[in-house]
Nucleic acid binder design. Structure first.
Length: 428
DNA sequence: TCTGGGGTCCTAGGACCC
DNA sequence: TCTGGGGTCCTAGGACCC
């Protein structure tokens, strides 16, 4: 089933969000830079200089305030429109180098190099790297190996060892084991904190020791997923390249609030906004949900305040992607889990039981044609919003920036996706 | 004061059916 | 009093990823 004569290249953008900010802002190229999570909460991307200052991944920004001041660290809010657009540019370049590309995340892609056996992989990797840098301004690291898991390992070395100049080919390397030995167990792709702890207790502390662990033992304790990781380290290809992303099985939209929310009305308003967003995502993949899950929670970090969290699953008596219906249903059900007197931090929605719009079955209270008509109507609104900007047409949208909206104090312009924010170059 | 958001897969156990 | 066995489906929870 799996082709064992493949070679994978994992192309990973270096410090991706920071690199995106730097493309359009040359002044910060040599400075320490960090990009924050939504709501300006935690550090999610760091430049090399910021890493050297000891700013950890995921650190809440308020814990770094001193370092930021002292070393003039440049801080940015997340600018997802910019990052998503830059990502698709990078992916477009990669597709010129292989017909088989899997976009693994916003900043990573696997390329299958099977068809290029005649080439020198390292040379080819260098060519990819140079082209991406030239055409998009984004620096990447490339790891090449016989399996995806090994390509991940190779990528680590490409990224860390300056002498490798961003490309490392582990394919058929006579000394593969010595490289595996250098990788800590928790840094192996697929082995998270829980399994690492368990393995370390058994004395298995690096990639090589794991590779040499008994397969049945691993299968028993780490399920088939761990077994696959093991086999992949041994060079046996178990994780397929996924060129066409499958439809999502659950679609979520939720945000932490810029400031706590107490009033039902405001909570409802925020939820309506997230439902609109999530329903857009549904329609984008032409899906209809059968259930809706809504949840609310107070700020769990604020232990001095009374805590409350609850959720409710709603089976849709009529499956639909029609936003107004979903909003009114959510409102009704939010009332069932809302308790007054709490300072809420977050509300959200997840659609599940997702089916393709064409597979909607007739029901007692609706006809599939009606569901499809509503779906098509909403898609027209989506097109208008696509063309003229989000919120051109919509439901329950507050007129001005609401009190609960995310704080994004350090947001850079949408350099590449909004006409009025395109950078201007002045020449003398 | 201030701590993100959005996914996937696997398994165990209960409900239900014949 | 005696009370099977095997299959399937669903769900909750736990692990992982970026």
């Amino acid at each position: 089933m799996f082709n064992q004569d493949q070679v994978f290249a994992l192309v990973d953008c270096n410090n991706f969000y920071v690199s995106c900010e730097r493309v359009f802002n040359p002044r910060i190229r040599d400075k320490p830079v960090v990009v924050l999570s939504n709501n300006d909460g935690c550090v999610v991307s760091r430049s090399e200089q910021a890493k050297q200052l000891g700013i950890g991944m995921g650190t809440p920004i308020f814990k770094c305030e001193q370092l930021i001041k002292k070393f003039d660290v440049q801080v940015f809010s997340s600018n997802y429109s910019l990052y998503a657009d830059m990502s698709s540019r990078v992916m477009d370049v990669l597709r010129k180098f292989s017909p088989q590309v899997e976009i693994y995340s916003i900043d990573e892609a696997f390329l299958c190099l099977e068809k290029f056996k005649q080439k020198d992989y390292r040379e080819y990797g260098e060519e990819i790297r140079e082209t991406v840098a030239k055409w998009t301004g984004i620096p990447v690291s490339i790891g090449i190996a016989e399996t995806k898991t090994l390509a991940k390992v190779a990528n680590r070395f490409a990224k860390r060892d300056v002498d490798l100049k961003g490309v490392f080919n582990l394919t058929g390397h006579p000394d593969q084991d010595s490289f595996l030995k250098q990788v800590e167990i928790e840094d192996i792709w697929g082995i998270g904190p829980k399994y690492s702890l368990m393995l370390r207790k058994k004395g298995i502390v690096d990639g090589l020791m794991f590779k040499n662990t008994d397969e049945n033992w691993v299968r028993e304790r780490m399920t088939v997923t761990g077994q696959k990781t093991l086999l992949e380290l041994r060079g046996k290809n178990c994780v397929e390249l996924e060129m066409i992303p499958p439809d999502k099985k659950g679609i979520t939209c939720s945000r932490s609030f810029g400031q706590p929310v107490e009033k039902f009305e405001l909570l409802q308003q925020a939820l309506a906004t997230y439902i609109s967003r999530a329903a857009e995502k549904l329609r984008k993949q032409d899906s209809i949900p059968l259930s809706m899950h809504i949840f609310i929670t107070t700020n769990r970090f604020n232990q001095d305040e009374p805590q409350y969290a609850n959720w409710i699953d709603i089976k849709l008596s009529k499956p639909t992607s029609y936003t107004p219906y979903l909003i009114s249903l959510a409102r009704e059900n939010l009332g069932k889990i809302y308790k007054s007197g709490y300072r809420y931090k977050k509300v959200g929605v997840t659609f599940t039981g997702i089916i393709p719009s064409k597979e909607v079955q007739p029901g007692f209270f609706y006809h599939p044609d009606d569901v499809l008509n509503d779906h098509r109507f909403m898609k027209i609104l989506d097109q208008i919003n696509d063309r003229w900007g989000r919120n051109t047409v919509g439901f329950s949208l507050p007129g001005k920036k609401p009190s609960w909206s995310m704080s994004q104090k350090k947001l850079s312009p949408k350099f590449t996706t909004a006409w009025d924010q395109i950078p201007v170059v002045y020449c003398d």
